[in-house]
Each structure stands twice: as structure tokens, then as C-alpha cells.
Amino acid sequence: MASEPPVNTSPSDAPATHTTIIHETPRSSSGIGIIMALILLVVVVGGIYLFTQHSSESVKDNAIAEAANDVGNAATKVGDAAENAVQSGN
């Protein structure tokens, strides 16, 4: 008969068990989320209304004026470059 080594079964070797109980409390709705959603909806609809009220004619006029200004600036730069070329050639 073979002798087996002694097995230590003291409580310190046993795995610790832990039980967690979670109690969910019902959430009461205060209506803040609904009010915020309605305010956001009003702001978005108002913004869309304001952006669509600008006449396309004024937008076109502003684009033409800006393009003319850019052409004027480019012409000034070309003139300055030509003047510098003439002065450096002397």
C-alpha cells in the first residue's frame, strides 16, 4: 500500500467567494431631455430658415466683387514684378 502525501485542507487555502447584489432603482423622467430636444429642433429649423432667406442675387454680387478684388490684387503683383525686372535689368 502506497502512502499518499497529506493534503492540507485548511480554510486559508479555499478560494474566497464574494457575492454582489445590484438593486436597480427606477429612473424618474423629469422631462429635461424632451425639452432640450424641442429647443434643439427649434434652433435647427430657425437656422435653416435664416440661411434660405438670403437672396441668391446678393450672394452672386458678393462673389463677383470678391473675384474682381482678387484680379486687381493679381494685376498689382504683376505690375510690381515687371517694375522690379526693369530696375534689375539696368
Rank of each mutant, 00 (worst) to 15 (best):
Ala63Gln: 08
Ile39Val: 14
Thr19Pro: 02
Thr52Met: 11
Val44Gly: 00
Ser58Asn: 03
Ala65Lys: 15
Glu57Thr: 06
Asn73Arg: 13
Ala37Ser: 14
Val45Met: 04
Ala67Gln: 14
Leu41Thr: 06
Gly46Glu: 00
Ala67Cys: 02
Glu24Asp: 11
Ile48Tyr: 06
Asn62Gly: 13
Leu40Val: 10
Glu57Ala: 11
Thr25Asp: 12
Asn69Met: 09
Thr20Cys: 03
Ala75Asn: 14
Ile48Leu: 15
Asp70His: 08
Ala37Asp: 12
Ser58Pro: 01
Ile21Gln: 05
Ile22Gly: 03
Val43Thr: 10
Glu66Lys: 14
Val42Ser: 05
Leu50Gly: 01
Glu57His: 04
Asn69Glu: 15
Thr52Lys: 07
Ile34Asp: 11
Ile64Gln: 15
Leu41Tyr: 04
His18Ala: 09
Val43Pro: 03
Pro26Lys: 06
Asn73Trp: 12
Gly31Glu: 01
Ala81His: 03
Thr20Gln: 07
Ile48Cys: 06
Gly79Ala: 12
Ile21Thr: 15
Ser55Gln: 01
Thr76Met: 09
Gly33Glu: 13
Lys77Trp: 07
Val45Tyr: 02
Val59Asn: 01
Ile35Pro: 01
His54Ala: 01
Ala65Trp: 07
Ser28Leu: 11
Lys77Phe: 09
Glu24Met: 07
Val59Tyr: 00
Val43Tyr: 05
Lys77Asp: 14
His18Ser: 11
Ala81Lys: 05
Thr25Arg: 14
Tyr49Ser: 11
Ala37Glu: 10
Ile21Phe: 00
Ala68Asn: 15
Asp61Val: 11
Asp70Phe: 07
Ile64Tyr: 08
Gly33Val: 06
Ala74Pro: 00
Ile39Gly: 02
Lys77Val: 07
Ser55Ala: 04
Ser30Asn: 13
Thr20Asn: 06
Asp80Pro: 01
Ile22Tyr: 04
Ser29Arg: 10
Gly31Leu: 01
Ile35Arg: 12
Ile39Asp: 03
Leu41Ile: 04
Ser29Leu: 09
Ala81Gly: 02
Thr25Trp: 08
Ala37Phe: 10
Ser29Asn: 15
Val59Trp: 03
His23Asn: 14
Asp70Gln: 14
Gly79Glu: 10
Ala74Tyr: 12
Gly72Thr: 15
Ile35Glu: 12
Ser56Asn: 10
Val45Glu: 02
Val42Ala: 15
Ile48Phe: 10
Asp70Pro: 03
Gly31His: 02
Lys77His: 08
Val78Gly: 03
Leu40Lys: 11
Val43Met: 14
Glu57Trp: 01
Leu41Asn: 01
Ala81Leu: 06
Thr20Ala: 10
Tyr49Leu: 13
Ile64Val: 13
Ser28Lys: 10
Val71His: 11
Ala63Asn: 08
Ala68Gln: 15
Ala63Leu: 09
Thr19Cys: 02
Leu38Gln: 08
Lys60Glu: 13
Ser55Leu: 00
Lys60Met: 08
His18Trp: 07
Thr76Ser: 14
Glu24Val: 05
Ser58Ile: 00
Val71Gly: 05
Glu66Leu: 08
His54Asp: 00
Tyr49Gln: 06
Leu40Met: 11
Met36Trp: 07
Ala74Ser: 15
Asn73Gln: 13
Leu41Trp: 01
Leu38Trp: 07
Ala67Ser: 13
Leu41Lys: 03
Ala68Cys: 05
Pro26Ala: 06
Leu38Arg: 06
Val42Cys: 07
Ala65Ser: 15
Ile39Met: 08
Gly47Trp: 01
Leu40Tyr: 09
Asn73Ala: 09
Glu57Lys: 04
Gly46Ser: 04
Ala68Phe: 02
